Computed example of a mutant assay.
Amino acid sequence: MQTTKVILLRHGECEGGNILRGQIDVALTEQGKKQMQTALSPLFSNEFSNEFSGTLSDESPDDCLPDIVMSSPLIRCAKVAQQFAEKHQLGFVIEDRFKELNFGDWDGKTFDTLYQCYAAELDAYWANPWKIPPPNGESMQAFEYRIGDAWQSMLEAHQGQCVLLVTHGGVIRHLIAKALGVSQAGGFYTSLKLPYAAKVEIDVLHDSDKQYMTLNWG
């Protein structure tokens, strides 16, 4: 039997203010970069910390660096992930299927604008996103299918390794639900708070053709 450890890292604060960020491609703010530095500090070398903050880190590098770094292609994830991988001479893989949900006509709009124009539709969507997709957007079923497909491909390619996956809040929430055995629970995604640069670890025990997931969140 082997165990694959997956460190899920949400991106930091983004430019654009209080907007609905799906697949709109926006960069991190300076605060967002600092949040990522803090989240990754146990894995940082002094050299990498120096590049982000201008000062040397007081943290000692962690001995258990990931074997591979994977990332959503969106810049709020990919830029920091690639820099981290290059500094530590780790393999780096962009996986398009780990992008956030495509919110269609709602994507990139401020929440004030959305609630002025789509209040009833938004409330219905948050209550049960499997029933009502965003206008011209991706259904929750399609989103969960592509995340599940990407997850399985990752486990098959990197079984027994430690993987750092830099991705989005919606992706991580779905993987948490998967680890907990939760399926299509109304309000689950909105009730699960996941701050910027949050880290969640999932251990996957491989036993022949079976997989057992354990959630580590602290």
Rank of each mutant, 00 (worst) to 15 (best):
E138I: 02
C64K: 11
L101S: 04
Q89K: 13
D96F: 07
S191Q: 15
D123A: 05
I172N: 02
L90H: 10
M154V: 04
Y145S: 15
W130Y: 08
I172K: 03
V93S: 02
I94P: 07
D112C: 01
P66V: 06
Q116D: 15
F143M: 05
A78F: 01
S183Q: 09
V93I: 11
E144G: 03
A124Q: 11
T113D: 12
I132W: 02
A185Y: 07
L155P: 08
T190V: 07
H174L: 06
D105T: 12
Q159K: 05
C64R: 09
A177R: 05
R76S: 13
D67Q: 06
E156Y: 00
L122A: 11
K131G: 04
D67E: 08
A120V: 13
I172H: 03
L101E: 08
S191R: 10
Q89M: 10
A177T: 06
L155W: 10
L114N: 05
W106M: 02
R97E: 14
L155M: 12
A142N: 14
K178A: 04
D149H: 13
H174E: 01
W126L: 14
D107T: 00
Y189L: 13
R173Q: 10
T190M: 10
S153D: 12
Q184I: 00
Q89I: 08
P134G: 05
G187P: 09
M70R: 04
L65W: 03
D63M: 00
C64L: 10
I176K: 01
I176L: 07
Q141V: 11
V166D: 05
V182H: 05
G181I: 12
T190Q: 15
T113Q: 15
D96P: 14
E86D: 13
P134N: 14
V163E: 14
D63Q: 06
R97I: 02
L65V: 10
L114P: 07
E138P: 11
C162P: 01
H174M: 05
K87P: 07
W106V: 00
G148N: 09
A150K: 00
T167K: 01
F98P: 13
L122Q: 13
A78E: 13
Q184G: 06
S139M: 13
G148A: 02
P133L: 01
E86G: 00
E95Y: 00
L122W: 08
R146F: 12
E100I: 05
L122D: 12
F98L: 07
H158G: 07
